[in-house]
Structures are given as C-alpha cells and as structure tokens.
C-alpha cells in the first residue's frame, strides 16, 4: 500500500466528489419542495418548507405496481442466472474436453453482443411466442444477456478452488455431483455473490427490453415508468425527482446494508 499524500489526486477527487454529490443533492432537495417553491428557487436551493407531498403523489400512482414488477423480474433473472451459470462454470473449470472449451468460447464471444442489437429479433420472436407484454418475455432475454459476463466471472472464481481438494474428495470416493455441492459451490461464494449483484443490477435497471416488449401498467418496470413520468410531468420537477429518488431507494438500502460485498462483487466483474 502506498503511504504519504498525493495532493493533486486528492484535489481531483474532491472536485469529482462535488460533481457526483451536487446532482444527488439537487435530486433530494427538489423532491422535498412544493412546485411553487421549486419554480421560485430552482433546483439548487434548500427547500423552504420541506414536504413529502410529492413522494406521496408518486406512491399513489402506479409506482408500487412498477416496483413489484421490477422485483419479480429481478428475482427471476437472478434465480435463472445462478441456476444456469453455476453448473456451467463448474464444468468449464473441471472438464477440459474440446466440447466444453468450445462452449466457453461461444460465451466469451457473447460478451461482444450488444443487447441493443437484438431488440428487433427478440421483439419478433417474443411476439410470435405470444409473450409480448408479459414479464416472462422480459425475464428470459434479460437473463440470457447476463450469461457471458457471469460465466466469465464465476469460472474465474471457481478456478481458485485448488485441485488438491478435489483429489482429496475423490480419495473419499466422492463424485462430480458431491464435489459440486461440497466444494465448488461453497468455495466460490464470493464469485456467486458477484454474479448475483451483477444480474440483479442488470435486471433492476434494464430499460431496452421492457421498452420494446411491454406496454401496459401491469407489466411496466421502474426505469420505463420513469421514462413515462418524464414525458408526462417534465415540468413538475419535484414529482419527477421524487420518482427518481424512490426508484433508487431499494438499491440504496441494499447498498447501505451490504456495501462491502456489493463493492467487492462489482470489483469481481473487472477481474481481481
């Protein structure tokens, strides 16, 4: 670790801190203002008479429904990704055959496929399948596009489980299945945490698939709801900012509770 002070970098960090913090402050402060207060004092001033009216207004709208939809999508995507990627990563690490390494390469190539590119064909296939405006139609492709990154991350983590442990287990007469449950899974917990964090953020914040695959209030997710709010209330800044703020609160709560593992998890995506 480096000792001593680097004033230049420190000053730069201070400036960046302001750049990050001021908009966040403006969001919170605006959401607590009345509309008159906002149009008199603008987004930067402190609220003169703080009010929760805007928040209540947003909560009284379809927002709770969007929240529920987003939660359903997130849980389903995470469950799917974990169920699919954990065995895949296991076989990628433990099976050194040609077929498996070909499969792994296909997933690596998948890293370069932008979600945006498949919006049209996915829309086409999902409408043929009769899943348009159905949360399942959003969940399936969202999960699929989490697979490449998650496979890369988790196979990296599983590789750290030392071969000696597998050999010891083999001496005990254990097979692949037991090795999976007693070694691979427990010992790559941090990697699994990373793919959970990654896929949860992808699903929670996903925009494009909900945009082109859903239309009704019953299937709307929060990011799309925010987009609609912006179209309809672009001038009602306090309500708009309240909606943005409320949309982030669930993630912020998770962040406050599990900051360390979240940060570690995300660091895991960039490689260790």
């Amino acid at each position: 670790m480096r000792r001593g002070h680097n004033y230049l970098a420190g000053a730069a960090a201070g400036v960046w801190l302001l750049i990050i913090a001021i908009p966040l402050y403006a969001m919170v402060s605006s959401s607590l203002k009345t509309r008159t207060d906002f149009s008199n004092s603008g987004p930067l001033a402190l609220p003169t008479e703080p009010t929760l009216q805007n928040m209540l207004e947003v909560i009284a709208s379809s927002f709770p429904r969007y929240l529920l939809n987003t939660a359903i999508v997130t849980v389903a995507v995470v469950a799917l990704v974990v169920a699919l990627v954990v065995p895949l990563a296991y076989v990628v690490v433990r099976n050194r055959g040609r077929a498996v390494s070909t499969i792994f390469r296909v997933f690596l190539l998948g890293l370069a496929i932008p979600v945006q590119a498949v919006a049209i064909p996915v829309f086409y296939l999902i409408s043929i399948a009769g899943l348009y405006d159905n949360l399942i139609g959003v969940i399936l492709p969202t999960a699929a596009f989490c697979l490449p990154v998650c496979t890369l991350v988790l196979s990296g983590a599983m590789r750290d489980v030392s071969p000696e442990m597998y050999e010891a287990l083999a001496l005990d007469g254990g097979g692949s299945f037991r090795a999976f449950w007693t070694l691979a899974v427990p010992l790559s917990r941090s990697g699994i945490a990373t793919i959970v964090v990654y896929s949860a953020l992808q699903a929670w914040n996903g925009f494009l698939f909900p945009l082109v695959l859903t239309q009704s209030v019953d299937t709307k997710t929060i990011p799309l709801g925010l987009f609609d709010f912006q179209t309809q209330f672009s001038v009602n800044m306090p309500a708009l900012m309240s909606a943005v703020l409320l949309s982030t609160i669930p993630v912020l709560i998770v962040y406050l509770i599990a900051r360390r593992s979240l940060v570690q998890g995300l660091m895991g995506i960039g490689g260790k």
Binding site: S127, G130, Y132, T231
Partner: peptide, 22 residues
Amino acid sequence: LDPLPGGDNYQQKLRTIMGTNS
C-alpha cells in the same frame, strides 16, 4: 382501459402492439 403514454409516441406504440397478441 390501458392508457399508453401520450406525447409523440402514442401512434408508434399502438402500431407496435397491433401486430402482437396484445
């Protein structure tokens, strides 16, 4: 009643839906 978001995209959103099961 399913209100689609107003603005310049109503007709386009409707047009998208008309080709689907919804």
